[in-house]
């Protein structure tokens, strides 16, 4: 019950900060299009007036790679380099916005002015960046111990073939069940920074762990629920994108709008998690 109540409060808070979510959406879109548009004209140039481009209709037909010749190699490296750069820039941008979002929680959701939001984002940026890097290192180590080592061990036992390995899935499950812990700590630590104004990362992290310990099951429960919804949502979104093959201008525009709507929902779900963690902290007081 406690979990549901907090999730409800979090959802309300997230909805009331729709302006911030839209701001993040627009910024991300502009950023991604800066890489995507040159790729698009590159692709259009390769095909020129050829009708072979129709073979890209249901997914990229690798059979065309040979006909594309050298430009295909350039395209491939442009896509992978562009993708990497976007991930890096995105990481910084989202760390920045997280500063503003958690500040909203301190000042009451939905009430934050846009300029305050940006200012708070800037103020929290450095400590948030440190927390993000530390937490990601922790998660990487966690992943290695829970999933990596069992895989290596089974590979070694079964002589290199993937494995006598149904029980490897058990480790995947354990890994997934552990993830809410780390995400909660990351969120609670950042909430602490936003609320106290302190830039001390280690104090923030210990505050995060303390918050987890204080009300473990509720904390764990809210993040777990959101995470499960999130994962199913991402899975469905990718499935939808993969198998949609709009052929005409209008339909393509609709498809684009649909993907962007999906992305806004995705952003909402992340904000929902932040807001729920904040709601839990304020309920305690």
């Amino acid at each position: 019950m406690a979990v549901l109540k907090i999730l409800g409060k979090g959802a309300a808070a997230a909805v009331s900060s729709y302006k911030l979510i839209l701001l993040i959406w627009v910024t991300t879109m502009v950023m991604v299009f800066m890489v995507a548009l040159p790729l698009r004209s590159f692709l259009s140039n390769i095909f020129g007036n050829s009708m072979a481009v129709t073979r890209l209709s249901d997914g990229f037909d690798l059979g065309l790679a040979g006909d594309m010749g050298k430009p295909f190699v350039s395209l491939l490296s442009a896509v992978s380099m562009g993708g990497l750069l976007l991930l890096l820039a995105g990481f910084l941008l989202y760390t920045f916005f997280a500063g503003g979002l958690f500040a909203s929680c301190a000042s009451g959701w939905g009430r934050l002015k846009m300029s305050t939001f940006i200012r708070e984002s800037a103020r929290n940026f450095l400590p948030f960046l440190k927390i993000a890097v530390l937490m990601m290192l922790l998660i990487a180590a966690y992943t290695f111990f829970i999933v990596g080592i069992p895989i290596i061990v089974t590979m070694a036992i079964s002589g290199g073939s993937k494995g006598s390995s149904n029980f490897i899935y058990l480790f995947y499950a354990i890994w997934a069940l552990g993830m809410p812990v780390w995400l909660f700590v990351a969120d609670a630590s950042r909430r602490w920074v936003a609320a106290t104004g302190s830039g001390n990362v280690f104090m923030a992290l210990s505050a995060g762990f303390r918050a987890l310990k204080e009300r473990f099951w509720v904390s764990y429960g809210i993040v777990l629920v959101i995470l499960i919804l999130n994962a199913s949502f991402v899975f469905l979104s990718i499935w939808f994108t993969g198998w949609s093959i709009p052929e005409k201008g209008g339909l393509i525009f609709l498809f684009f709008m649909a993907t962007q709507a999906l992305f806004i929902i995705k952003l909402f779900m992340k904000t929902w998690r932040y807001a729920s963690v904040c709601a839990l902290a304020s309920q305690k007081k």
Partner: peptide, 23 residues
């Protein structure tokens, strides 16, 4: 339209990736 559709898919997948790989 094919390159437009490819671009749109790329944009959305990148947006998802960015959102997933940040805390």
């Amino acid at each position: 339209y094919a390159s437009r559709r490819m671009t749109d898919k790329f944009v959305f997948l990148m947006q998802l990736m960015i959102s997933m790989f940040t805390l």
